[in-house]
Design a protein around this nucleic acid. Structure first.
Length: 257
DNA sequence: ATGGTAGCGCTGCTA
């Protein structure tokens, strides 16, 4: 089973690239983030033509998460389990069950500046995700949390830790919040397979960062132990970050036996 | 030390 995650940074702009990528990468499940679409504008037909069922949670111009699957798509749920009916939330979390695997597509808030209210909201969001799995999920079952965490878990996931010191994505509280998810029973599958530093999934559009190799590994697939043990291969597909109109993120693929 | 780009949508916000 091949599971992938990709922050597409506008599905409207990226649809041709996503279609092309699906045709050669052929994931069984693709989690997308930052579709920037309302549900009514989600191109479900384009994906069904390629053999994928889909679910989308979007609010329009910001955020937006989706799950595509060609191995079944059941029990779709948007948002947190402790979310009140009337609570208005951003479109950052979508769940579905695909071939017996509980899948989450997540887009963690960026945080903007350390210490800002947005940064506090980011930490609170990650803590709420931890509470969600703690209270409603079972670490002995097959579950993956896929998406843009907006956190580089360790210094080896950062092109220049000294230069970025004091900024978001690498601060200790953010890393601790991701570590708390791992402590519940999740494994960073890419890192489990490949220990090397200098492998990234996001590069700033500005200043030629992609071509200069200045990136961060912030797109992750976290899997429960029984599933993580079956991971055989993973790839951050830098080819998809090239060419015309690329996203600022590359897709991450993981194969489970 | 700073600013650099991209997307949305029409003004500046978000990343």
């Amino acid at each position: 089973m091949r599971i992938a995650t990709w922050n597409v940074n506008s599905l409207k702009v990226r649809l041709p690239k996503v279609e092309e990528w699906l045709a050669y990468a052929r994931p069984d499940v693709l989690c997308m983030q930052e579709t920037k679409l309302a549900d009514s504008a989600f191109p479900a037909l384009a994906f069904s033509a390629l053999g994928y069922e889909s679910a989308h949670c979007g609010e329009g111009r910001w955020n937006g998460v989706a799950i595509l699957s060609r191995v079944g798509l059941e029990d779709v749920m948007a948002g947190f389990s402790d979310q009140a009916e009337e609570e208005s939330t951003e479109a950052r979390l979508l769940w579905a069950t695909c071939a017996g695997v509980r899948v989450a597509s997540i887009y963690v808030p960026n945080g903007r500046q350390v210490g800002s209210e947005h940064y506090e909201a980011k930490l609170a969001w990650l803590n709420r995700l931890r509470r969600h799995v703690e209270t409603g999920c079972d670490p002995t079952e097959n579950l993956v949390i896929c998406g843009d965490f907006n956190v580089a878990p360790e210094d080896r996931d950062v092109w220049d830790p000294a230069k970025l010191h004091g900024g978001t994505h690498i601060s200790a509280p953010e890393r601790e919040a991701v570590a708390a998810l791992r402590d519940w029973g999740l494994s960073d599958v890419f890192r489990q397979l490949y220990p090397e530093s200098g492998i990234y999934s996001w590069w700033d559009y500005r200043a030629g960062d992609f071509h200069q190799g200045r990136g961060l590994r912030i797109d992750l697939v976290l899997a429960t132990k029984p599933l993580a043990e079956r991971a055989t291969w993973a790839l951050i597909d830098r080819q998809a970050r090239k060419g015309k109109l690329p996203s600022d993120h590359a897709p991450l693929l993981v194969d489970f036996q």
